[in-house]
Amino acid sequence: MDVFLQQLVNGLSLGGIYALIALGYTMVYGIIELINFAHGDVYTLGSFFALAVLTGLGVSGEVHGPALIGVVLVTVLAAMLCCGLTGVLIERLAYRRLRNAPRLAPLITAIGMSFILENVMQLWRGPSPVSFPSVIPNPIVHLGPIDIGAKQILVIVTAVVMMFALQLFIYRTRLGKAMRATAQDRDAAQLMGIDINTTIALTFLIGSALAGAAGFISGVYYGTTWFFNGFEAGLKAFTAAVLGGIGNIAGAMLGGFLIGLIEAMATQYIPQGAQWTNVVVFSVLVLVLIFRPSGLLGESLPEKV
C-alpha cells in the first residue's frame, strides 16, 4: 500500500509535466485543427530560455528566502513571454498562409518547424545535455509512509492551476468567447466582427507560453535539459491530449495525469514492467478510442478550444 501511494505521487508528478504540454497541443488543435508538432520543441525552448535567464541572474544553485519568489517569477514570466512570442512567430511564418490549404500541408510544415527548432537549439546550446540549476529547494514532505518532494507538489499544483485558469479565460472572458466562436466556425466568427488572425495568434501565444512554463518546471524538476527533450515529451503530451479528447482543456489535463499514472503503475506492478510502459499506455489509448472515439471528455464537452 505504501508503495502504491508513493507511485501515485510519482505518476501524478510525471503526468503534470505531460498535462502542461498537452494543454497547448489541445488549444491549437481546438482552434485550427492543426496538430502542432513543433509544440514539444517550444517546451524544450522554454527550458533553454529559462536557463539563459537564470544564467543572466547569476543563479547556479538553490535560492532561499524572498529572493526565491523573485527569481522564479522573473524566470517563469520571461520563459513564458519568449515562448509565447516564438509560438506567435511560428504561426505567422509557417501556418497562417496554409490555413486554407489541404490538411496535410500544415502538418508537414509543423514537422519541419519542429526540426528547425531542434537544430536552432542544438546550435545554441550544443548537442549534449546541459545541467539546469535546481533553483527551488526540495524539502521532502513525509506524509505518513510516503515521501513527496516540494518540486513534485509544484508540478502537480501548477498543472491544475493552469488548467483552471485556462478554463476561466475561455469561458468567462470576451477573448475566450472569441476563441470559442473561431473554433466553431471561422467564417461566421469573422462575419460577426471577430479578428480571427488576432484570435488565433492569441491561442498560439497562450499555448506556447504554457509550454514555456512547463519547460522551466521540468528543468527545475529533472535538473537537466537538452535539445531533443521535446520529442518524447511532446509525443506523450499529444497522446494525453487525444486520450482526454483533443480540443478539450480538462481532457488534456486528465489525459496527462492518466498517462503518468499508468506509466508509474505499470512499472511497479508488471514484472520487468519498465520496458512495457509505452505498450501499456498505448493499449489503454486504443481501448479508450474504441469505446469513446473522441476521447474521455471529448463528447460531454463538445465545444473545442
Binding site: Q7, N10, Y222, F231, E232, A264, T267, Q272, A274
Partner: peptide, 22 residues
C-alpha cells in the same frame, strides 16, 4: 533482486527507482 530494462527515450525513472528502493 531483479532485472529491469529501460525504454528508449525515457527520462523519468522515479517510478522504477521507487520499485527498486522498496
Amino acid at each position: 533482486l531483479g532485472h529491469e530494462h529501460l525504454n528508449k527515450g525515457q527520462g523519468d525513472f522515479k517510478a522504477l527507482l521507487t520499485k527498486i528502493k522498496s
